[in-house]
Design a protein around this nucleic acid. Structure first.
Length: 467
DNA sequence: AAAAAAT
């Protein structure tokens, strides 16, 4: 395709101006750029709070009862100990998705759920609350199980569980690879009495198979990042095996921000007769996240631009995504040599290292995290105001965009209605086309920032990324 | 082929 024919979709944001490209398609003029930025700015107030914005939720029910939407947590008949935890966490009223999903999630007898909502809209709280409310605290045996695609996400969810369940007597356990050597016996004991378990598929399956985790009282089974859990080679098989070990009457809950069409069909078989929430594709891209791209000359120029960005701008906290572990290591090493303080996390590190890196980043003692797709989903660090796609997410062929991963990655910023910025590094016609496809797919503009005029870069990005 | 996740 002739890339000069591709313009930023004129239907984006309801139409209007079309960017003028030169024959390479790389360099629109700066006036237009400024106009675009202003346009982005004027859009913002309308969408200041994601939780208040009116995104369209489509609900499909398994029964014919009228859709009950709550306006207060009190209406959900939760125990006072659970309510106390909710309020202490700072939740005052249910978010849009919670208001509609919780009455269905909490129904007796339980019904399955396939839920979709944007990043950072409180879906974790929704399923954690459901898990806690299903537990008989007098029964010291596993009753609620949640699976996640990474150890970091499992640990993060467990922190939420412990906050929300602080005033309940719930006993919890993390089923992830151990980060320190410990006798098998104590793990046995830990899981024997644990009521709520969060973990990764491999370890959970292993512990179930060895009867370290007892399955017969399991009441609720949650897949977080469900599309990824079902879709991904390896993860999918494990999730299915684990589900098949659950009791027949166990409630199945699937949650994710994205469901590719193939996965959605499978999800309805995985969680039969489920209530469903879905969003239109253009509702998925979080509106408080500003999206940019920078066109670099080649692979090596990407590193120079990265170096310059971190040299010339004061950046709050940020995540840099790359495609391969090896790239993460290499970029981290080079950035360190250039005098930048960065940390690096991927699946090739030891569990202890991973925990240390993540804890350091959460505490804010490290500002720049270079990572792979291991952290593309679910990870919540409120101070992250910049996400860089050093490598644009693409599918296995290396030619087509990976829309789901893109959305999840940029969703690491702009959590809970905060503003955020994402920058995509483009370095060849393929990556350029991929960015244009992503723009078209989500119907959100991705604005060019030059790599050769740092006054403009500073003007555009300074106030956005410095916090 | 990438990355993740079990030993």
């Amino acid at each position: 395709m002739d890339i000069s024919e591709i313009t930023t979709s004129s239907s984006v944001n309801g139409g209007g101006e079309v960017l003028q490209m030169n024959e390479l398609g790389f360099f629109p003029n700066v006036e237009n750029l400024t106009a675009q930025i202003e346009k982005l700015d004027t859009q913002e107030p309308k969408h200041r709070s994601l939780l208040e914005s009116s995104y369209e939720v489509k609900v499909t029910r398994v029964d014919d009862e009228p859709l009950l939407s709550v306006t207060k947590f009190e209406e959900l008949n939760l125990g006072p100990d659970l309510l106390k935890g909710i309020y202490e966490m700072g939740f005052t009223t249910p978010s849009k998705i919670q208001a509609k999903a919780l009455p269905l999630l909490l129904k007796k007898p339980p019904q399955n759920m396939i839920g979709q909502s944007q990043s950072g809209t409180g879906k974790t709280a929704a399923f954690v609350l459901t898990m806690l409310s299903r537990i008989d605290f007098n029964l010291k045996s596993p009753q609620a199980l949640c699976l996640t695609p990474s150890r970091e996400l499992a640990r993060q969810i467990m922190v939420e569980v412990r906050k929300m369940g602080k005033y309940t007597p719930v006993i919890t356990a993390e089923a992830i690879r151990e980060s320190h050597i410990r006798g098998n016996r104590s793990r046995h004991e830990e899981f024997a009495e644990a009521q709520l378990i969060v973990g990764t598929p491999g370890t959970v399956y292993d512990l179930l198979k060895k009867h370290v985790i007892e399955k017969k009282h399991m009441k609720i089974f949650v897949l977080d990042e469900a599309d990824n859990m079902l879709d991904q080679q390896g993860l999918g098989d494990q999730s299915i095996r684990i589900k098949n070990m659950m009791p027949r009457e166990c409630q199945i809950v699937l949650f994710s921000a994205t469901y590719s069409s193939e996965v959605r069909t499978f999800a309805t078989r995985f969680a039969p007769n489920a209530n469903q929430f879905s969003l239109k594709v253009e509702e998925l891209s979080v509106k408080t996240i500003k999206q940019f791209y920078m066109d670099c000359k080649n692979e090596d120029h990407k590193f120079e631009v990265l170096d310059d960005l971190y040299t010339l701008l004061t950046i709050g906290q940020s995540i840099i995504f790359v495609q391969k572990r090896e790239t993460a290591d290499r970029i981290a090493k080079r950035m360190t040599e250039k005098g930048h303080k960065v940390i690096n996390l991927h699946g090739g590190l030891s569990t202890t290292e991973r925990d240390e890196v993540m804890d350091g980043f959460r505490k804010g003692s490290a500002k720049v995290l270079i990572t792979t797709n291991v952290l593309s989903r679910g990870i919540d660090v409120l101070q992250v105001n910049l996400v860089i796609n050093y490598d644009i997410p693409m599918d296995l062929s290396g030619r087509n965009p990976d829309y789901e991963t893109y959305l999840h990655r940029i969703g690491r910023t702009g959590r809970f209605g905060r503003s955020g910025v994402s920058i995509n590094f483009v370095h060849d016609p393929v990556s350029w086309e991929v960015v244009k496809s992503i723009e078209k797919h989500f119907q959100r503009e991705i604005v060019r920032v030059p790599t050769d005029d740092w006054d403009v870069v500073e003007k555009v990005l300074r106030k956005e990324v410095n916090n």
